[in-house]
């Protein structure tokens, strides 16, 4: 077994386990902690895909900032204890059925392995394609279409910030 394959399985199995634990825990705080673990593992997965910069962003923004917000809200609303907040009976079965139906669709149609003709990946793109420099140049390259979405994203974030303030503040 090549070391890359070993690393993949070492990351993939705990990831799926963490994801399952997120949705099975009674305690939201636990769910949040498993989600942090899940995201850190995903960051490792990004590293194994030689996307170093995205991995760093994943750790800082997702595992860091977003999850802190989750935990903060859980503590703020004092929801730390175990809670029976699962759908019961028919609702639960329907949700699981949907999930399994989706999985069956993915696997049954083989979409996960279709269309993967030989890519243009080279040793160079593998070695340098994921550095902050490469991503940054691509992001601001006028020949590529990413500059405009990037600017729009800033407006989306601004709206989110303003919206969150408006929603959560008692009095403006």
């Amino acid at each position: 077994m090549r070391p890359g394959v070993l690393i993949f399985w070492l990351l993939a199995v705990p990831m799926v386990a963490c994801a399952l634990l997120v949705i099975t825990s009674r305690n939201p705080l636990r769910s949040a902690l498993f989600l942090v673990a899940h995201m850190l593992l995903l960051a490792g997965m990004f590293l194994s895909l030689s996307a170093q910069y995205v991995a760093a962003v994943q750790v800082v923004v997702y595992a860091g900032a977003i999850m802190v917000l989750f935990v903060f809200v859980i503590m703020l609303l004092n929801l730390g204890g175990a809670q029976k907040m699962d759908a019961a009976g028919l609702g639960w079965a329907l949700g699981i059925a949907m999930s399994l139906g989706l999985a069956a669709l993915f696997v049954g149609t083989g979409v996960w392995k279709s269309g993967l003709h030989a890519g243009k990946a080279t040793a160079k793109t593998l070695a340098q394609g994921g550095t902050a420099q490469a991503v940054g140049f691509a992001l601001f390259d006028p020949e590529l279409p990413w500059l405009f979405p990037f600017e729009v994203a800033s407006i989306v974030l601004l709206m989110a910030a303003v919206g969150a303030i408006v929603l959560a503040k008692r009095k403006l």
Binding site: A87, G91, L94, G95, M98, G101, L102, L105, T109, G110, V111
Partner: peptide, 24 residues
């Protein structure tokens, strides 16, 4: 809310199933 979410997922499933089967 959850009723709407489920309806949405079901709708997405149907659309996805149609698209994938059509492509297949």
């Amino acid at each position: 809310v959850r009723f709407y979410a489920k309806t949405m997922i079901a709708g997405a499933l149907i659309v996805l199933a149609y698209a994938l089967i059509q492509a297949g």
